[in-house]
Design a protein around this nucleic acid. Sequence first.
DNA 1: CCCAGACGGTTGCGCCCGCAACCAATACCT
DNA 2: AGGTATTGGTTGCGGGCGCAACCGTCTGGG
Lengths: 152, 152
Amino acid sequence: MPATPWLDELEMHAWRSLLRAHSRLMGRLDAELQAAQGMSVTDYGVLVSLSEAEGGRLRMSELAGQLLLSPSGLTRRLDGLVSAGLVERHRCPTDRRGAYAVLTPSGRSRLQSAAPDHVEQVRRHFVDRLSRRQLAALADALDKVCTGTDCG
Amino acid sequence: MPATPWLDELEMHAWRSLLRAHSRLMGRLDAELQAAQGMSVTDYGVLVSLSEAEGGRLRMSELAGQLLLSPSGLTRRLDGLVSAGLVERHRCPTDRRGAYAVLTPSGRSRLQSAAPDHVEQVRRHFVDRLSRRQLAALADALDKVCTGTDCG
DNA sequence: CCCAGACGGTTGCGCCCGCAACCAATACCT
DNA sequence: AGGTATTGGTTGCGGGCGCAACCGTCTGGG
């Protein structure tokens, strides 16, 4: 260990701001979406990923990857959505191990009713507080943080 | 609801990058600090906050605030650190409801042994991937996200 | 002085999530 | 073809965390 230098003021500030911003944002978004729509942000994310996919269906592993969720986490999450009738599981015909998560019509309409609320919340707490330039800088910096190890 | 416009490419990118970066960072830091020091990032945070405080001691509520943790979350977390001998609870003499979390000598040395690892990990995964200018821009943008509601 | 209300911290409970182990099915290798 | 390794997904388990309810203590109004 070649004596890694301590973090200076700026570095520490950036790091702590990231932690704090994430914590606040997620807390608020979760609470508000729960209040307005009775849905968690993660559940919302599942519906969004499916709705963006070809045919409203995605393999479990693919979906887990997009949602930054472990396989087991996704399994449980889908259980809830399935029992709520928003998503169905379909066995993959060409590989009988695999399963598709499929958005139901009910799930799609549920998403359409929740989306405006969520978008408004993201705008209010995040997007609208920053200039276009800042958004671009933020995205650029945060992407750099991910590249190089395994991100896609 | 005055028809909030959908997020465009840039806005969506920034938002998703934030979620992804945080997820990756926390995952890696937690795993690496656990492997190297057998300590969670949250526990590390407790020790840091205490070590930075006057006399190595802080009121529970103050500590919870700094760590972005609920009161109950902090209570449990402290239980672990207390039983590991790294922190002690002291009743506040002037207000017998209150309690101080106090860093023990053992806790301080534990922190000193863990700090280089943690700092190195934060450097490797975050700080060293960004220029000074990017760090400043990041901190500035993320702080704007927090101001206005209740942040300090 | 006493009681209602606020406050600091802890406990009961339930949710979410990741890891390791597991099962079924497929791919590879000879 | 046959046995082994690998893959896709699910389950057992445990940890972390927040919310609501609670307890002891302090405070303010009558």
